[in-house]
Amino acid sequence: MATEVNTPEFRAVPASAPAGPWREFWSSFAENKGAVAGLATIVIVALVAIFADLIAPYSPIAQFRDSFLVPPFWAEGGSTRFLLGTDDVGRDLLSRLIYGARYSLLIGCIVVTLSLAAGILLGLVAGFFRGITEDLIMRAMDIMLALPALLLAIVIVAILGPSLTNAIMAVAIVVLPHYVRLTRAAVISEITKEYVTASRVSGAGLLRLMFSTVLPNCMAPLIVQATLGFSTAILDAAALGFLGLGAQPPTPEWGSMLAKAREFIQSAWWVVTFPGLAILITVLAFNLAGDGLRDALDPKLKR
């Protein structure tokens, strides 16, 4: 009888019970309505950017000499010809905003890719080779953090000259310290764990140890930071554009569309309002999604 009782029962595992990691992640992410809304907005903005040629009624740089500063269609004097009105040289605002989505997402992608790649590399090196290498890297990052991010970006643009490419470079450099610090901290906490020792003992080379053993386990905070990094990148690049140090006219980048907007605060509110609204919505979407991602990936932070 005793043996009967002690016999463990192996039952078939029901298919639905142990959700896979992706499924579990998604159900945790979907619980957060704001995050889902953010993700949906990002998808919409991305689709608008991809299909800008099809959606936009006009070219973003086409100037209609007969229609300067036409208000949006619902306002007095507006027409459905230019749904959101035109700017001071007669360009369709809606079309410029639609093409502007391309620039903002492109800026986000390039900045995040560059800074993430460089940050991971430097962070791994700092975490693996302690001592002087680490000190040099981390002190350099401290120096970069001693200056306000936007100011450092302005310095870099001042050195390189104002252009969209240089603004992207500047923003990528400015956000670098965050990725380096994050990677290094994650590496240092992982490197003492048994699985790393096991891998080392079984003869894994340094590169394999760095990129294929340790790095995958450091990714969660980096993914969150990268998502939030999109919003920082878009905001900072737009600020540089606004200051005349980023994208140059007639590029329909949202920030640089606002550069001359100050002249129109008295006369044409729509020229001021819509580009900024586009920036706000996109940045907010990335922040919402990033917050949701953090809660879903890091159960410790969830309450």
Binding site: G34, L235, A239, R262, I265, V272, G276, I279, L280, L284
Partner: peptide, 25 residues
């Protein structure tokens, strides 16, 4: 939480212009 995340996402150069349009103009 909603308002503060919006504030956090705000392009402040635009926010300033918006407030000028509303309160000053």
């Amino acid at each position: 939480m909603g308002v503060s995340l919006t504030g956090y996402s705000m392009p402040i150069f635009w926010w300033g212009l918006l407030l000028i349009i509303l309160f000053s103009v």
